[in-house]
């Protein structure tokens, strides 16, 4: 079973969101900041448990005392566009507005791009730009819940268009990386977010959460204080093995967001129909792209096969063909 590898620390209530949730829009510098004592406790916890840290930054620098403490631990800074040029080692999160302002992706080669469904039309231009720089885009779609039939259909078209762009830019061993299309070309097993398993979050209130989204949804979602023995109740429900839909699925690029699961279906281990159909549209597009790449003698996806499926939602299979008890016992997360 995977173990805890890193900690996410939200420095301020208005820290940048890098995932499916929205953080606080405004935040006074002092009011929303994690206290120095709590940050100290969180950093010490990371150091004692060999954890790396992802620090989520607000739109301003946190002050020298805080920065000194941050540098004590191995970490990644995740920053909003405004701090994009300030730290050389940061990953920048961009929103649609950031791209429109400058009409291009700037500053960094490795970006997290958060877009809502109406904003996806700017994606091809962003992919072109990042391909030119040899970087990587991690796309986060902000409104998964809105992906009904018509949006799924539009998304499929967009995936085909971007696949075309990527194929053109690919070499014999490399291809510009966009998570939703190229990750599946490299994966032989699930590459999920694993919130609560490989990482936990410390919020500005100094308490632990499965991930930042649970904090922003409600402080009542805390799983407890920072301490050596962390007991997550019903933790097994975070594991792939305990998800009847996901454990039979091979859309390995899916992040399997437990927050979205919980919000849309009421259960951490059950993905929504929207999530499954989007991930399967991506999987299918990756498969089509792989076929084209193979024609070009692409060698960057050795051993990977993406078979055609007769369904677009593994829920249909989970309901029809129950996993056997033996399959469950043999399952390796």
């Amino acid at each position: 079973m995977p173990m805890l590898k890193y900690l996410i620390i939200i420095l301020n209530d208005a820290s940048v969101s890098f995932c499916h949730y929205e953080s606080a829009k405004t935040g006074k510098k002092e009011a929303g900041m994690i206290s120095y004592d709590n940050l100290n406790k969180a950093v010490a916890f990371a150091l004692k448990n060999n954890l790396k840290v992802n620090f989520l930054y607000p739109r301003f620098r946190p002050g020298k005392k805080y920065e000194k403490l941050i540098e004590d631990v191995e970490h990644v800074k995740i920053v909003p566009r405004k701090l994009g040029g300030v730290y050389s080692d940061a990953i920048t999160v961009l929103e649609a507005g950031d791209l429109r302002k400058e009409n291009k992706v700037t500053g960094t080669e490795n970006i997290i791009l958060r877009l809502s469904s109406p904003e996806l039309k700017i994606l091809p231009a962003a992919v072109k730009e990042i391909a030119r720089k040899g970087g990587r885009i991690n796309l986060v779609i902000k409104d998964v819940e809105n992906f009904g039939d018509s949006k799924i259909s539009e998304y499929r078209k967009l995936l085909a268009e971007i696949s075309g762009l990527l194929i053109k830019k690919s070499g014999e061993n490399s291809i510009p990386e966009v998570n939703f299309l190229t990750d599946r070309l490299m994966l032989e097993s699930m590459n999920n977010c694993d919130a609560g398993i490989t990482h936990l979050t410390v919020a500005p209130d100094g308490r632990l959460y499965l991930c930042p989204a649970f904090y922003y949804e409600s402080g009542e979602n805390s799983i407890g204080e920072i301490r050596n023995e962390i007991n997550i109740k019903n933790r097994q429900l975070l594991e792939l093995k305990y998800s009847p839909v996901c454990r039979i699925c091979d859309a390995y690029q899916c992040r399997r967001c437990v927050f979205l699961n919980w919000k849309l279906t009421g259960e951490l281990n059950t993905p929504s129909r929207q999530q499954c159909r989007m991930s399967h549209a991506e999987r299918e597009a990756s498969g089509n792209m792989l076929e084209e790449l193979k024609k070009k003698n692409f060698k960057g996806a050795k051993g990977i096969e993406i078979k055609k499926l007769g369904y677009d939602d593994p829920f249909e299979i989970a309901v029809k063909n129950r996993y056997s008890i033996q399959e469950f016992k043999n399952f390796n997360s």
Partner: peptide
């Protein structure tokens, strides 16, 4: 809301 029914319809003994 079919999303809310999904956990019930996929729930099995082992899980």
């Amino acid at each position: 809301d079919e999303n809310r029914l999904r956990p019930f319809l996929t729930l099995d003994m082992v899980s």
